[in-house]
Design a protein around this nucleic acid. Structure first.
Lengths: 196, 196
DNA sequence: AACATAAGTTCATCATAATGAACAAAGAGA
DNA sequence: TCTCTTTGTTCATTATGATGAACTTATGTT
């Protein structure tokens, strides 16, 4: 088994992640509600996330057991130090990924935010910080930023459009073959999709 | 609700993703096994992924129902056109993210591969293609690549070490506050971790 | 033919995360 | 006080994805 992709030392990391997508959004909802209204109740969280009150109640009681959520003097929901830490980490990752996808890669805001939201709780602190470092470098110089934007503006999917590809030459080609499967047909039907 | 992070139009996209992390690895395992040995059976897949035969059997029967897996003339597992398409897409995303994290951001191989593996099935085709485009630009010129590597080599977490931060000035600071919570304490204990 | 091993499926069980219905408790108004 | 609404919890159910045990159905070997 030479291919590392199914290496059992990490393909199950997904399950052992510090926080689930769902839990992250419950924490962020409590944070956002307290920010906006000064308090957060089970019903408010349920409404914000558009889940049933039952689901919110059960999920939040799990978060309490994990020590991420408590109640304040008025019995309103409150993030603990650990809970706020997790929420901020995930929110930060969301902003980092969203900004990178949209402002550096030039992905449509729709797709950028959707992708960022899916990946936000899975990116490690180290990777997130380094991505910020890269963005800070790229965007710190006007002409450098402009050059990147120019390059990304004439983005075309596929290898053919590139005169010279340092990626393919250095190993495996990283351009997905445009197959005639269900997925690519759906992709081509998308409004505003960029396809060769 | 001005914050888009909990916007219900996309926080549930996570559940509605085309493929689950688990399903992606079953497909990739079948692909890898056929590549290496010319055939793939339920037991081989179970062994490769280190799951029980029962789990593999049930998961694979789901993949058959979805039309991603069939059997060949010898009753060995075989990816359909759609199945191979999904597998290749996810593998491509894994390679793209892994290469980006490791070779551009300078993340440790361990973390780079773990992060890539978690995110591989969630990155859209558009974002993946654009990330390849960016990498091709960055790595196509020797001095440009060297400059990026220099910049990333002197990476330090936190804002303080940067003289000038175009990210913070343009909006919200993207550097996660170094809180004293369970998560950051664990992070600091990691061997080889980069912390201020 | 008889027996052992290998391969694959099915079942009971568990965990997460959702729904909707039922129910309990707390407040508000006539 | 009685009633109605809001709030929150619990329960039965569903779906996914895992385990381990039991079981069936090959495939060999002597």
């Amino acid at each position: 088994m030479s291919k590392p992709i199914n290496d059992s030392t990490y393909w199950r990391d997904f399950e052992k992640n510090d926080i689930t997508h769902s839990a992250a959004h419950y924490l962020m909802a409590i944070d956002a509600l307290r920010d906006e209204y000064g308090y957060a109740r089970v019903t408010d969280v349920a409404e914000m996330l558009e889940v049933s009150r039952g689901a919110a109640s059960m999920s939040i009681s799990q978060l309490k057991k994990r020590g991420w959520v408590t109640e304040d003097a008025h019995r309103f929901l409150l993030l603990t130090e650990d809970g706020r830490c997790m929420a901020q980490l995930v929110e930060q990752n969301f902003r980092i990924l969203g900004k990178f996808f949209e402002e550096v890669l030039g992905v449509s805001p729709e797709t950028a935010l959707s992708d960022a939201c899916k990946m936000e709780h899975l990116m490690s602190l180290e990777t997130g910080r380094r991505l910020v470092w890269l963005m800070r470098y790229i965007l710190s110089d006007e002409s450098r930023a402009a050059k990147i934007h120019d390059v990304m503006a004439c983005f075309r999917p596929g290898c053919e459009s590139a005169e010279h590809c340092p990626l393919c030459e250095g190993g495996q080609c990283l351009t997905a073959p445009e197959g005639d499967c269900e997925f690519h047909r759906k992709e081509r039907r998308k409004p505003g999709s960029v396809n060769s």
